[in-house]
Design a protein around this nucleic acid. Structure first.
Length: 734
DNA sequence: AGCACGCCGACT
DNA sequence: GTCGGCGTGCTC
């Protein structure tokens, strides 16, 4: 130990809960090194990209062991002090190593130590000649005509990324226009503030107006708004008009969406509305594209970013607003590694940045409803559907003792015929892909099981194989039973593939399209399908939960949920909330136009309170009654949970691990320990899984307990032999 | 997480 | 006699 030294405290992306000490580089004044900058450090055998956390005058480490920083990668930190404290908070809250939390905040390219430089984007601008040319004169070159027309609507130079988003394969046309001296390249960014609005805003109804005004009046401070509005109530228009006010103040907007498939639609709408630089960030982009988007926001080149969960930490040069759309969606919770909730972290980030956070959804999470009740969030309720569209009518169809054909009851089939006869579309929802979830031998009762999981193999007839939906392992579909070798193998239960085949029989001459993970694997398939549906080339749409998100089907007037019951009896207390959200979200796909929509739910439990409350009184009442149940059962949000998951290939090891841990743990009256118990799926991909649920009446008590628990876990020998994870505020208890 | 060190079994 | 199995410990 020595004093009067500069010791750099550094976070490294390794699963270790402490910082590492290094000596500063010789050629730089250590005082100029600011927390948050990236460094290259020697670590073990190799080197790693690390993050400077602070500078201290002493070290616990013997000075002989201290190594020197290899390189300083950033002159100044890429994250603001507030964002740095957000990362510190998140590491503490989720009990995750700081280096890995930092790593998650940066795009891959910067994590790898690439320089934080921006490629100048190419901008296109019309020449004098180009601006004056009548697009009609290019009638024989439609692409060029379209490009010219688009550029004429813009007053400034337009970046290539904008053209990428609005015109397919525009580059040859741009080349042609350049050759004709109608267009030239420019290296300068547009001036984002000269004009903002390209296309006129819609006229908001009074509720939208009220919502817009409330958020706009809070634009210079932190407040959380829950914008609750059914499909078609015009949430997006509220977003856009609020965004306009943010842009007018010269500030930036971060918009988070649950899924990649939803970004192109919204991006299009934003680009048609706003004449400002917009960028996107999601996992389908290349590392370089994401780095450019991230740095572009950091420098303030872009005014709006649309992105998925991982975009949450994108630095903002001029933070103005955070929007999180479909806030109830479970994909905002990261399910591995650093298991953060983008919704909850967004709220904390808004608080630190002193900007409002706007959460939008038709089906608020119970946590958000609770936060409204507690006065923490302000509710903005859009109850009217814009354009006077009638809300869909929901109907429970009791299928007990009804004749069924492959999951379709006779009354349902009759309703479908009626709808189709009117030249309207039917949407069938079944959240199970494959042909059948079980294959059983009619002779001896043998069932096809996964060798590596505690689960049955799912029959996929199209590909003639059995597949495990939990680990992905596959087997050829056998002609006869491997056990008795005589029995006939019978598929049991219902999947989308089976229903698709039944529909072909029941509705000959009608075109059926199936949309699930199996049919939409290839790129562009989903987009093509959606286009065919909206053109009216499809009569019956059948699919899994990918149908529940975002897409509008204006000509669908009948929505059917084939099997509602499988969601009614789950051991996970979140299941009823998720089912209710699913029902409402799927219902929202119908009746968008003037034609009223209907929703039929097939059930054998028509008296189940979840269904009756939801259908009779709507989602709001359901949410309140579900919250009342949570309160009685002392479940979140009335208590606080963390889930410790442990898995190992050796079946005895997880329990031994827990045994040792429980011996080391000091008993604590304020934190209940439920378990350890086998996980609901007790074996997965060859690993035996156990879990311990921790629950407390207050968050500080839970966190104090976890603070003590983590070093105990790190200290156990058996920790090396297991895979373990801690999930704070788990949403999926599997 | 990687990676090296180290102490016991089946091979040229 | 060695190659390599993975149990254990460390990384500043």
């Amino acid at each position: 130990m020595r004093n009067n030294l500069y010791i750099l405290k550094v976070a490294i992306p390794v699963p270790v809960y402490r910082l590492f000490d290094y000596l500063p580089p010789l050629d730089l004044d250590p005082k100029t090194l600011k927390p948050g900058i990236r460094l290259t450090v020697p670590f073990g055998k190799g080197q790693k990209t690390a993050f400077l956390i602070g500078i201290d005058s002493n070290s616990e480490i013997l000075s002989a062991k201290l190594k020197r920083i290899e390189a300083v990668l950033d002159e100044r930190p890429l994250l603001s002090d507030r964002d740095l404290s957000l990362l510190h908070w998140a590491a503490r809250y989720y009990h995750h190593p700081l280096g890995e939390v930092f790593s998650a905040a940066f795009p891959v390219a910067l994590r790898q130590g690439k320089p934080a430089t921006i490629k100048a984007e190419k901008f296109y601008v019309l020449t004098e000649k180009g601006r004056l040319l009548n697009p009609e004169q290019l009638r024989r070159a439609p692409k060029q005509q379209q490009l010219l027309y688009q550029l004429q609507t813009q007053r400034d130079a337009v970046p290539a990324s904008h053209l990428n988003a609005i015109i397919e394969n525009w580059r040859p046309a741009a080349k042609a226009l350049q050759d004709k001296q109608l267009l030239r390249l420019e290296g300068v960014a547009v001036n984002a503030t000269t004009h903002l609005i390209l296309n006129p805003q819609l006229h908001p109804n009074s509720l939208q107006q009220e919502a817009i005004e409330q958020v706009v009046s809070a634009l210079s401070r932190f407040e959380v708004f829950l914008l609750e509005g059914v499909t078609g109530s015009g949430k997006t228009e509220v977003y856009m008009q609020v965004i306009r006010s943010v842009l007018e103040r010269g500030l930036q907007v971060l918009v988070l969406l649950p899924e990649i498939t939803l970004t192109p639609q919204l991006e299009q709408r934003f680009r048609l509305r706003f004449a400002v630089p917009i960028t996107i960030s999601h996992s389908k982009l290349t590392d370089i594209q994401r780095q450019q988007a991230w740095l572009g926001m950091q420098r303030g080149d872009y005014a709006i970013m649309l992105g998925t969960r991982s975009a949450l930490f994108t630095p903002l040069a001029r933070p103005g607003l955070i929007i999180l759309d479909e806030e109830h969606d479970a994909s905002f919770k990261q399910q591995e590694g650093f298991r953060f909730s983008a919704r909850d972290v967004a709220v904390v980030r808004g608080k630190l940045l002193n900007v409002p956070v706007l959460l939008g959804t038709a089906t608020p999470s119970l946590e958000s409803v609770y936060n409204v009740e507690q006065g923490r969030y302000r509710l903005l309720h859009l109850t009217e559907r814009a354009g006077n569209a009638a809300p869909p009518k929901m109907l429970l169809l009791d299928i007990r003792n009804k004749r069924m054909q492959e999951g379709l009851s006779e009354p349902l089939i009759a309703e479908m015929h009626k709808t189709l006869a009117k030249n309207e579309q039917v949407l069938l929802f079944l959240n199970r892909r494959g042909f059948a979830p079980t294959l059983i031998c009619h002779g001896c009762g043998w069932v096809a099981r996964c060798r590596r999981c505690e689960a049955n193999m799912v029959v996929h007839y199209d590909e003639a194989l059995l597949r495990c939906h939990h680990c992905g392992s596959e087997q050829r579909l056998l002609p006869q039973c491997p056990e008795c070798e005589t029995g006939q193998l019978t598929p049991l239960g219902l999947g989308t593939e089976r229903v698709e085949k039944a529909l072909a029989q029941l509705f000959p001459g009608r075109s059926v399209i199936r949309l699930d993970r199996d049919t939409t694997q290839r790129k562009g398939v989903l987009e093509d399908a959606l286009e065919r549906i909206n053109r009216g080339d499809v009569d019956i749409i059948l699919g899994t939960q990918m149908l529940a998100k975002g897409h509008h089907f204006p000509n669908v007037t009948l929505v059917v949920m084939l099997d509602v019951d499988s969601g009614l009896f789950s051991i996970d207390f979140h299941a009823s909330e998720k089912l209710a959200q699913m029902i409402v979200q799927v219902s929202g796909r119908a009746g968008r136009a003037e034609k009223p929509g209907r929703v039929i739910l097939q059930t054998r439990k028509p008296e189940h309170p979840l269904l009756t409350i939801l259908i009779k009184d709507g989602y709001g009442r359901f949410a309140r009654s579900a919250l009342a149940e949570r309160r009685l059962a002392e479940l979140p949000p009335y208590s606080f949970q963390a889930l410790l998951r442990v898995e190992a290939t050796d079946s005895a090891v997880p329990l031994q691990f827990f045994e040792q841990l429980m011996q080391a743990v000091e008993p604590n009256r304020t934190v209940r320990m439920l378990g350890p118990v086998p996980a609901p799926m007790s074996r997965r991909a060859g690993r035996y899984r156990y879990q311990l649920l921790l629950q407390s009446a207050t968050r500080p008590e839970l966190h104090r307990f976890l603070d003590k628990l983590m070093p105990l876990i790190a200290g156990l020998k058996l920790t090396r032999k297991v895979r373990w994870s801690l999930d704070v505020d788990p949403v999926d208890l599997y």
